[in-house]
Design a protein around this nucleic acid. Structure first.
Length: 240
DNA sequence: CCAGACGTTGTT
DNA sequence: GTCTGG
DNA sequence: CCAGACGTTGTT
DNA sequence: GTCTGG
């Protein structure tokens, strides 16, 4: 799954990789947590072939939600059901986005009960694009309020690289898939076909400081490599 | 008809 | 907004 | 995802 | 144990 990630890539490199005209200069992020603002890339409404960067609240608030806090539980959407679930289907049909990252975190449960974070990265810390959805929400009865724009990260079954840590992982879209995913006119079949787990052999795992366990602070020390306190072993299969 | 849910993960 | 359950 | 709170009344 | 907030 994906409940925490990092984006440290400099702005200039982001512009090139994601083919963006402009984006706000952003400080490197080492510890991006749910409910915070995250960077999303979406197609421009008036010109769907071009892309824009928008900051959105992580945790998709369905447009019909009565309470903004519902978004706190919508940080991920399952690829298997995203097209049908009431909370996500409208966004899946029309409001898809890329959520760039250059690392995401998964926690290993130690025999002591403590939680050991591992940082998953691509070769040379290259940034990648997670498949996302976005939505806008306005508190009911308050027409003066600005809509809240929020997003969710789609998950799928874990590949072999990930399976020692979890049975789910974020959908990472290869560059060839970006245009289709962002196209507001792509159909559901095309989009669903893109929601696969990443090919094995691309993700590295680095054991990092437990400083990243707390949603605050957000600094380089959070991702400082450390020696693994216990080896990573595949969890035993459930007994039958 | 109205009321109430609408989600994922992990753990048991 | 839309579906499910009562 | 993890961490931290989890409550009310009355008084300042 | 379970919910809320970041």
């Amino acid at each position: 799954m994906c409940g925490r990630f990092a984006l440290r890539t400099p702005t200039l490199q982001m512009l090139e990789i994601f083919n963006l005209v402009e984006m706000p200069a952003l400080a490197p992020r080492y510890n991006i947590a749910p409910t915070q603002l995250v960077i999303c890339i979406r197609s421009v409404a008036e010109d769907p072939k071009s892309r824009e960067v928008v900051q959105m609240k992580w945790g998709l608030i369905p447009f019909w939600a009565k309470d903004i806090a519902i978004g706190n539980q919508m940080i991920n959407a399952r690829a298997e059901t995203v097209a049908e679930k009431p909370a996500f289907r409208a966004a899946f049909a029309k409001r898809r986005c890329l959520i760039p990252a250059d690392g995401f975190l998964e926690w290993q449960k130690l025999s002591t009960g403590k939680k050991q974070p591992w940082l998953m990265e691509m070769a040379e810390q290259q940034p990648f694009a997670m498949a996302g959805l976005w939505e806008y929400w306005t508190p009911k009865g308050d027409s003066t309020a600005k809509p809240v724009v929020s997003c969710s990260i789609i998950t799928t079954s874990a590949n072999e690289d990930m399976s020692v840590l979890h049975d789910r992982m974020p959908v990472i879209l290869p560059i060839e898939a970006w245009a289709t995913w962002l196209s507001p006119t792509a159909n559901a079949t095309q989009c669903t076909a893109l929601l696969k787990s990443l090919e094995n052999g691309q993700l590295t795992k680095t054991c990092v400081s437990t400083k990243v366990n707390r949603p605050f602070p957000d600094n380089a020390q959070c991702l400082q490599p450390v020696d693994p306190p216990e080896p990573l072993t595949k969890p035993m299969a459930e007994e039958g």
